[in-house]
Nucleic acid binder design. Structure first.
Length: 700
DNA sequence: GAGCACTGC
């Protein structure tokens, strides 16, 4: 601790904080800012009038940093120094320094808008620009005015981004703290490779033959490429002449690997052996691997982005930013001087790469964030005048408002409703929160809570798909329930209920190919959601499950109806005579049910006329993932609501962008880009749907 | 038939 670079700057940091309410600290990796800033301010008495809060974007980091600070101060974790992450609050009335995820702080702001228990708020790793951090930055900007006398705000960021943050906070001072990284020599390719997989392979072999000991970290975009490169590397290493170079271990590293496979990268290599770690950007920030001396950077990353005009997410391979490239290079210099090989020319880095990664707030659906802001009841605020570091597009805010209106979170004037307030309290996407409310009114809350919890954990439930692991597996997993033909939500419910009936037997999970950890997480989320509903819902609450639900031949109609109400903004109609669907909304999209879905066609081979979907993701084509069959009679009220929707009223002013802050945005839709045919198209579709419904009714 | 980077409440 004594030789942390930041400690030499203690005087100037403290002095700057004394004189200024907001300070930006630019600190590179290894500067010690995460552990030392809080302690410096603590020493100067800033914890006397309130808590020093430090946010982190990730849970693991939150806990480990808190643990270290407690150790350095010689106190017991949870007393003077504590942390709070979801499901785990280790703070007490003694706590002066509190580490927490940005999500938890945001949630605290719901019940205490002014965050009055804090005297200092440090937003650490702000350069990562998580959605939560960006909302917090906006809230801080308001808060420093409201609490001018008793709140200090510190923001830490990466070098390239500091000036922007400073400008956002009226030109507040920026302090630069050097890091403790070793120099990393950067090499560029002379041209862009035709195949960056091949090019990474050649570079890795070159290093292995020519360079002294030291591990190699290779950044690729996804599981598929990683597996390919791992097997090619293995092959090439094997073909090298025996004794011509040291041994090699080749390890894949990505998020869908089971945890026990991920931790393999932390055990040091045997002597005279070089490790190649082929990783996604999980190795950029989330996992730090010691012993890496060489980095090979493909220059690409897989990024999820939301298109507000279609309501669709897509997962695209895009070029990384300069901040990201530097972060990757820095991974080579943690233990000694290193080398970074960029598989792209220097001109690409300088002229094509963006300064910083496009922040999440510009790449996500904003329904949840807008609802959060609405529920804070900030007096002079409408969503448009809210000050964001990077303001989202007009289209994106409009999309959020439309979604919120369709699920009754805001009324036709854009004001938050009674439902909206309950929804904001639930740690769920708005559509699932709405589902819980409807389910509570219709006696199937217990089921809905299960579905919501299962969806929250979905990615951690199944071990990552891989051709390799499929081959190696000795036994195929036992069959899971099939959703009774109604689709994936019902299947998720049935899976949990089956496990529940075994009294949470871990063996059952293993036999069925489910991750025990994932299922336990579902159990936690279920409990949390039930408690929140218990606290919020007026009227009778049905959490345990009634007898009606346990009927043998149930069609889950109450639950499916609740899902239909909640997913009113995620509705699709089957096209005539084949199994393709069109989404129902502002702009209709052609989509298909994802082949992994358990939704079943009827005797004639036809899928249901209407489904709701959890999300549409465009991969090779646009697919609806997690669908649930719904009835036409539930859909009609939604169609009617869609018909009468006027967005300009929802936003109070959003329809006049030139008069609001929105006018500054670059991606305002131009007149000719607006799909003029859409309303008529929608009209006729609604009419057709109604006609079909009436015809069917008449037939009965 | 298709296949998904990473977080978080």
């Amino acid at each position: 601790m004594a030789n942390l670079p930041i400690l030499q700057f203690e005087e100037i940091i403290v002095e700057t904080v004394e004189k200024n309410q907001v300070v930006v600290i630019l600190g590179e990796t290894g500067s010690g800012k995460s552990t030392q800033l809080s302690q410096m301010l603590y020493r100067r008495g800033y914890a006397k009038a309130g808590i020093i809060g430090v946010t982190q974007p990730r849970r693991v980091a939150t806990v480990s940093v808190a643990r270290r600070v407690a150790q350095e101060l010689g106190v017991r974790l949870g007393e003077e120094v504590g942390y709070a992450i979801r499901f785990e609050d280790r703070t007490s009335e003694l706590t002066c320094i509190k580490y927490l995820t940005d999500g938890v702080l945001l949630r605290e702001s719901l019940s205490d808008t002014e965050l009055s228990s804090y005297s200092v708020i440090i937003l650490d790793e702000a350069h990562e620009r998580s959605l939560n951090t960006d909302i917090l930055l906006g809230l801080m900007k308001r808060l420093v005015h409201m609490r001018a006398s008793n709140l200090k705000v510190l923001i830490t960021s990466a070098t390239l981004d500091g000036e922007k943050v400073s400008q956002f906070f009226s030109g507040c001072p920026v302090l630069n703290v050097p890091g403790k990284l070793f120099p990393v020599e950067v090499f560029y390719s002379t041209e862009r490779p035709t195949s960056y997989l091949e090019s990474a392979l050649e570079k890795a072999i070159d290093i292995h033959i020519q360079e002294p000991q030291g591990d190699v970290l290779i950044f690729m975009t996804g599981q598929d490429d990683i597996e390919k490169l791992v097997s090619k590397l293995e092959e090439r290493v094997r073909s090298l002449e025996e004794g011509s170079c040291m041994d090699a271990i080749i390890l894949p590293l990505h998020g869908s690997l089971p945890p026990e496979m991920q931790v393999r990268v932390f055990s040091p290599p045997p002597p005279n052996c070089r490790r190649f770690i082929v990783a996604t950007n999980i190795a950029e920030t989330s996992l730090t691997i010691d012993g890496v001396v060489y980095v090979i950077d493909s220059g690409y990353v897989k990024q999820r982005q939301y298109n507000p005009s279609t309501g669709m997410y897509s997962l695209d391979v895009v070029q990384i930013s300069r901040v990201q490239a530097n972060q990757r290079a820095g991974r080579a210099g943690r233990t000694r001087p290193g080398k970074c090989y960029r598989l792209y020319p220097s001109v690409v880095y300088h002229e094509e790469f963006l300064d910083a990664t496009v922040p999440e707030i510009l790449r996500s659906s904003l329904a949840g964030s807008v609802l959060h802001l609405k529920s804070l009841d900030l007096p002079d605020i409408d969503i448009l005048k809210f000050d964001y570091l990077d303001p989202p597009s007009y289209e994106s805010l409009e999309d959020a408002l439309r979604q919120l209106y369709l699920i009754d979170a805001i009324d036709e004037n854009g004001s938050i409703t009674r439902f909206g307030r309950i929804m904001a309290e639930l740690p769920l996407e708005p559509s699932l929160a709405r589902t819980l409310i409807d389910a509570n009114e219709n006696g199937c809350l217990s089921q809905a809570v299960t579905v919501a919890a299962m969806l929250s954990a979905e990615t951690t439930l199944l071990p990552g798909y891989s051709k390799e692991s499929k081959k190696k597996r000795k036994h195929a997993p036992a069959d899971l329930p099939d959703g009774s033909g109604f689709g994936d939500h019902i299947q998720l419910l049935q899976i949990y209920e089956s496990w529940d009936r075994t009294l949470y037997d871990p063996e059952w999970c293993k036999v069925h190919g489910l991750q025990v950890r994932g299922m336990l997480f579902v159990k936690d989320v279920r409990k949390q959601l039930s408690q929140i509903m218990q606290k919020l819902a007026k009227g009778p609450l049905e959490v345990q499950g009634s007898h009606a639900q346990r009927e043998k031949l149930q069609d889950y109609s109450n639950l499916r109806k609740a899902l239909c109400v909640g997913y009113a903004n995620q509705l699709a109609e089957r096209m005539i005579r084949h199994n393709g669907y069109r989404t129902i909304g502002l702009k209709s999209q052609l989509v298909q049910v994802h082949p992994s879905s358990v939704l079943k066609p009827d005797e004639e081979g036809m899928l249901p006329n209407y489904v709701v979907y959890h999300e549409v993701v465009a991969t090779s084509r646009p697919f609806m993932r997690n669908v649930c069959a719904v009835e036409m009679s539930w859909v009609l009220p939604i169609l009617k609501k869609l018909e009468n929707l006027t967005v300009s009223q929802l936003s109070g002013g959003i329809g006049h962008p030139q008069e609001s802050t929105i006018g500054k945005h670059q991606d305002m839709p131009k007149e000719d880009e607006i799909d003029a045919g859409a309303p008529d198209d929608r009209e006729s579709r609604i009419q057709a749907a109604r006609d079909r419904f009436l015809a069917r009714k008449a037939n009965k």
